[in-house]
Amino acid sequence: MIEIFEAIKQSAIEIKHLIETGDTGKSELENSTGDTQLKLDIQSDKIIESIFSKVPSIKQIVSEEQEAVVPLHQDGQYLIAYDPLDGSSLVDVNLSVGSIFGIYEDEFTGKNLIASVYVVFGPRVEMVVAQTDVKMYRLLNGEFKFIQNIKLNEKGKLNAPGSTQNCWAPYHKQLIDDIFNDGYRLRYSGGMVPDLHQILLKGGGLFSYPGTTDRPKGKLRQLFEVFPFAFVFEKAGGQAIDGFDRVLNIATTHIHDTSPCFFGSNEEINRVKEVYKANEK
């Protein structure tokens, strides 16, 4: 596992340089979810695949930017699903973006996730590693140095409501309104990685991306985004659900499956459960 973390560190340093110097324009390609791929997405994907291809313990990889699983080393133990540059469209306006990695064994399902890592590219580059606990490292003078453990409080103060509001269910809109009326502060950049990172570092709150009328199964992808962050939030003492059940128990039928998702500290997630259970059809 250590060699995988070292590979992720190397990729982060190279992607940092790419963000600083690379072309932020659109390519002529689309990914599997129909999003136009930015040149940074494609280049970041190539950087990670090239580095992972040199790690013997990695059996297979699958990227949010690719259509299929890529075999690497037949005798490898680990499977890695990753989003090479989540929020890449924010680079040209100089907002924070990130890379997300889920490390699995045997097969790509939430129950088989054994570790997750994400990297935030902002004013500072920070890497968060979740195994038995959650640790944050910062890139200082070309090396990642341990900074702190991350632990959520039982109740937070931040609210990051995602998706298109006019497609929300009425009870979801009421939930979000009630949370704001209780004094929670809006923190939403449109980047999953920085928004969830902020909730984790500030001690708690709620990030939501529900099922909507236009996307009943949500927008965020299970293997590359939802599951890795669910693992982080659980190891930090919080929860991650799809509105009703634990996210990591959701079945995956295709590598690009999506899911509604709610991440947060316990009080906020329990509040979501109550509202969604009361409105369950």
Rank of each mutant, 00 (worst) to 15 (best):
I179Y: 02
I42R: 00
D83K: 07
I250Y: 10
Y276I: 04
R271T: 07
F101S: 03
Y82R: 05
G237P: 00
Q239V: 02
E107A: 14
F5D: 10
V129F: 08
S265C: 07
R187G: 04
L223K: 01
N279I: 03
K54Y: 06
E105T: 14
E6P: 01
V134E: 01
P210F: 05
A169N: 04
K217D: 09
I269S: 07
I42P: 03
A160E: 02
N266I: 09
F52H: 02
Q66S: 14
L152N: 06
D86P: 02
I241R: 13
H172K: 05
G25S: 11
L95R: 14
V232P: 01
K157V: 12
S57C: 06
F231Q: 08
Q60N: 14
T24Q: 10
I2G: 10
K202T: 12
H17T: 15
K54L: 14
S27P: 00
I114G: 13
Q148F: 01
Q43C: 04
E274V: 03
H197L: 07
T253E: 15
E154C: 10
I8Q: 09
G34T: 04
D106Y: 11
V97D: 01
G142M: 03
P161R: 02
S259A: 12
Y137E: 10
L158E: 00
Q77P: 04
P210C: 07
I19S: 01
E154F: 13
I13P: 07
F5Y: 11
V193H: 03
G34C: 02
G237H: 00
F262R: 03
A81C: 08
S189V: 09
K46F: 09
G156V: 12
L223W: 00
V70G: 01
Q198K: 13
H17E: 15
D106R: 07
E67W: 09
N279S: 04
A68P: 00
V275L: 07
I114F: 12
K26G: 00
T213Q: 13
D195S: 09
G211T: 11
V55D: 11
V125A: 08
D257P: 13
K39C: 01
I103L: 15
V129Q: 06
S53W: 11
L40N: 03
G237C: 01
D86V: 03
E67V: 06
S53N: 15
N149M: 05
Y209E: 14
I250C: 03
G237K: 00
Q74G: 02
I100C: 04
